[in-house]
Design a protein around this nucleic acid. Structure first.
Lengths: 240, 240
DNA sequence: CCAAAAGTGTTATTTATACACCCATGT
DNA sequence: ACATGGGTGTATAAATAACACTTTTGG
């Protein structure tokens, strides 16, 4: 939307009014699948409130009112992902999840948090290092989650629900396998996320539809791990 | 999440730090269907920037850091819906849509907006009155939209896309008909939103599935408007 | 009687689900 | 050779889509 001359005159004399403002953070629900188990990345807090409790990685969005208004929400999410967890930049799938702003959700002050989901390929998952100060670790979503700080349990719940929903009508599953993968590996991801088992034959049929739709393509080489070597595929992200 | 004694001691001496904060608003994509046409509610701005331009209704979230941290995001959305459009309280379906925070999206200052979708029943749609100051009107989404202020065109686009998606896997369509409705009326809503036509027989079949699922029930009376009177149904919102 | 919308039925095509079976390979 | 996971085929049920047909009413 273009500014009019009237707008420019107005802005030259405009002073941002002092209506109270909330703090705004981004929080990250970082998923991966390791050993056929859905994991979420948590960091241990070293400051009150909830010191020693585990929490979702996240932090304040850098903002300003002047010539630079600061970073975008996506940039803030990507920055926190890199600095708080040690994961490499630009290699994870990021998607806005939901915004949580209930009064009292942070006892210190009014904080509104824009939650993002991040999907990390399993071959990158071991790179998590954590902050200089705090620890960062993968936890199984189904077995042995610690009690989370703030309303992060609610955020994680929403992230899990959304991931489950998207898995069967959108190609997000490919963000949870390595660059090349076998049908069984992708099936393992679906089983880990959905928490059930899929018929190998029927799963293959769905897979083959995606193949003929050009969503995935055959890659070179075969996977040698199990008994019989399996064909290896690649996700075609550049959709026409 | 419970506070520990350590947390309480910490909070007693805590002063919210002066990291810069953004302004946070809620904006509303208010839909209804009138005469088989999808409409969105817009208000005309009477202040720069973008004075005289049409915009989505919305406003600042009331926040604080002290004993009361202010209103929730949902409350803010509901409040703006009532005060800016004159629609009655608590009678519209509200759902969080997406959060937009690109730097520069408001030239005055850094503003992060949490967008909500509101679905208004057609029998309530004529109640829109607008602010004391500004005008509020329904516009056809497909024919004759004015150019919108800020990034509101993008927000509306996202709202329209989401509504179309949800319409065929979730029961939101019932929020766009009156309390009792005929199959043809519901079909009209789907056609208006999706922008096509549905086979009456096949649509009826889908409808009958919802009937046997207990999602809707037969209501008293018949609809007299057309040639042959049609049966009237009601949406059963209290699902078990 | 007739136009028009309500409502029903038929058929073909696709998709989902369950499950039996063959294939290739490391041990 | 054989156990095991890779890979294929088939039968049934259910959902989707196209479309012909009957019913009921107001004019």
């Amino acid at each position: 939307m273009q500014l009019t001359p009237e707008d420019r005159a107005f802005l030259d004399t405009y002073e941002p009014s002092d209506f109270p403002r909330p703090s705004v953070t981004v929080d990250l629900v970082v998923f991966t699948v390791i050993d056929s188990d859905l994991k979420v990345l948590l960091v241990q807090r070293d400051q009150p409130p909830f010191r020693t409790h585990w929490a979702l990685p996240g932090g304040f969005v850098q903002v300003g009112d002047g010539a630079s208004q600061g970073e975008s929400l996506e940039q803030a999410a990507e920055r926190e992902l890199v600095t708080e967890t040690g994961l490499p930049q630009g290699r994870s799938y990021l998607e806005q999840l939901y915004t949580f702003g209930r009064p009292g959700r942070d006892p210190r002050m009014r904080v509104i948090t824009v939650a993002y989901t991040a999907l990390v390929r399993p071959d990158l998952a071991p790179l998590v290092a954590g902050d200089d100060a705090a620890d960062a670790r993968w936890f199984s979503v189904e077995h042995g989650l610690p009690s989370l700080a703030f309303d992060h349990a609610e955020i994680l719940e929403k992230g899990t629900e959304r991931l489950r929903n998207k898995l069967d009508y959108s190609p997000v599953g490919f963000r949870l396998v390595a660059e090349t993968f076998t049908i069984a590996e992708l099936r393992g991801v679906h089983e880990a996320v959905m928490g059930g088992t899929y018929d190998p034959g029927n799963f293959r049929r769905r897979f083959n539809r995606m193949l003929s739709d050009g969503l995935i393509e055959l890659a070179e080489g075969k996977r040698q791990t199990s008994r019989r070597p399996a064909k290896v595929y690649r996700f075609v992200s550049e959709l026409r």
